[in-house]
C-alpha cells in the first residue's frame, strides 16, 4: 500500500515538474512581457524594473531561480498587483473558488441523481424526455449564457418582489453562493444525470432487484437499500475528477457574478502576462488536480479489492 502511494506521489511530482517547465517556456515564448504597457517606458525605468524582477537575467538562469524558489514554495510577487505575493493571492482566493466548486458539485450530485432516477423510473415517458431535453440544453448552452440568463431572472424576481430575494452578484453571504454554484454545476449535473439514468436502468432490470421485490421489499426501502446504493456507484466514481474540474473551472462564473475566486486571477494573469501569477496558479492547479487523481486512485484501491495496490502484475 505504502509503496503504491509513494509511486503515485512520485509520478505526480514528475507531472507537476513537467507542467511547470512547459508553462515556463511557453509563457516566455509569447511576444511581450509583464512590463509591456500602453504607454512606452523610458529605457531607464524599464531597466530598473527588469532588474527588480530578474528579467534581465538569461532565461535559463530565470528558470533555475524559479525552480529553486518553487521547491521552497515561493512564487514571488505579482507584476500587476505590485504589493501582493503570489502565495497570498492563492491562499486568499482559492478557498473562495473551493467553496463555490464544492457547492456546485453538491448541487450537481443531488440534482443529477434525482433527475437520473426519475428519468430511469419513467423511461421513454414524458418525465424522461423532459430530463433528457434539460440535459442536452445544460450541456450545450455555454456557461456565460446561462450565467447571464440567471442574472436576468434574479433581477426580474427582485423587481417583482420589490426586495432582494437573491443578490445579483457579489460575495460575502450564504445567499451569494446558490445561483453561481447552480450555474457552475449545471453541466456536471446534466452529465451525472445521464450516468445515473443508465446505471439505474441497469439496476431496475437486474436479477437482485427482481429478487428483492419477490421477497416483499418495496417502497422506500427497496429504493434506498437496493436500487440507489447500487446505481449510484458509477456516479461516485466520477466525483473525483468532477470536484477538481469544477473547483478550478469557474472563471466565467466568477467574472459574471463578481466573485473574488482564483479562476479570475488565473485568466487575468494570462492576459496580462503576469509571469509570477501564471506560474504560481498553474503549478498550484496542477498540483491540486494531481493530488485529487492520486487520492481517487488510492480510494479505488480501498473500495475495490480488484484493483491491486502492490506493484507489478497487470490489471
Amino acid at each position: 500500500m505504502l509503496k503504491f502511494i509513494a509511486k503515485r506521489l512520485l509520478s505526480g511530482a514528475i507531472t507537476i515538474w513537467f507542467i511547470a517547465t512547459a508553462t515556463f517556456f511557453a509563457m516566455h515564448a509569447v511576444p511581450g512581457d509583464p512590463l509591456t504597457q500602453e504607454k512606452a517606458m523610458s529605457p531607464a525605468v524599464r531597466a530598473q524594473l527588469e532588474a527588480r524582477y530578474g528579467l534581465d537575467k538569461p532565461l535559463i538562469e530565470q528558470y533555475q531561480l524559479f525552480l529553486g524558489n518553487m521547491l521552497q514554495g515561493d512564487f514571488g510577487i505579482s507584476f500587476t498587483q505590485e504589493n501582493r505575493k503570489v502565495n497570498d493571492i492563492i491562499s486568499k482566493h482559492f478557498p473562495i473558488s473551493a467553496i463555490l466548486g464544492l457547492a456546485a458539485v453538491l448541487i450537481a450530485l443531488v440534482g443529477g441523481v434525482a433527475a437520473g432516477t426519475v428519468a430511469a423510473y419513467y423511461r421513454n415517458r414524458w418525465p424522461d424526455r423532459l430530463v433528457m431535453i434539460g440535459v442536452i440544453a445544460a450541456i450545450s448552452v455555454p456557461g456565460f449564457v446561462i450565467a447571464g440568463l440567471a442574472q436576468l431572472i434574479i433581477v426580474a424576481m427582485n423587481n417583482a418582489a420589490g426586495k432582494t430575494l437573491l443578490p445579483v452578484a457579489g460575495w460575502g453571504s450564504v445567499n451569494h453562493i446558490w445561483v453561481p454554484a447552480l450555474v457552475l454545476g449545471l453541466g456536471t449535473m446534466a452529465y451525472l444525470s445521464r450516468i445515473m439514468r443508465a446505471s439505474m436502468l441497469e439496476v431496475l432490470n437486474a436479477d437482485f432487484n427482481t429478487a428483492a421485490k419477490a421477497k416483499g421489499v418495496h417502497g422506500l426501502r427497496l429504493f434506498w437499500h437496493h436500487q440507489l446504493r447500487n446505481a449510484v456507484l458509477p456516479v461516485v466514481t466520477e466525483l473525483g475528477p468532477t470536484i477538481a474540474g469544477v473547483t478550478t473551472g469557474g472563471f466565467v462564473v466568477e467574472l459574471i457574478f463578481a466573485i473574488p475566486g482564483l479562476g479570475r486571477y488565473f485568466v487575468q494573469a494570462v492576459q496580462q502576462l503576469d509571469y509570477t501569477v501564471i506560474m504560481g496558479t498553474t503549478v498550484f492547479y496542477g498540483a491540486f488536480l494531481v493530488l485529487v487523481v492520486v487520492l481517487v486512485d488510492i480510494s479505488y484501491g480501498l473500495i475495490d479489492p480488484r484493483i491491486r495496490l502492490h506493484g507489478g502484475g497487470g490489471r
Binding site: Q151, I154, V168, A169, L255, I256, F257, A258
Partner: peptide
C-alpha cells in the same frame, strides 16, 4: 468587482 458590463448593468437594474 467585475469587468463584465452586462453584470454591472444587471446590478444597476436591481
Amino acid at each position: 468587482i467585475t469587468a463584465d458590463p452586462s453584470s454591472q448593468f444587471n446590478l444597476f437594474r436591481d
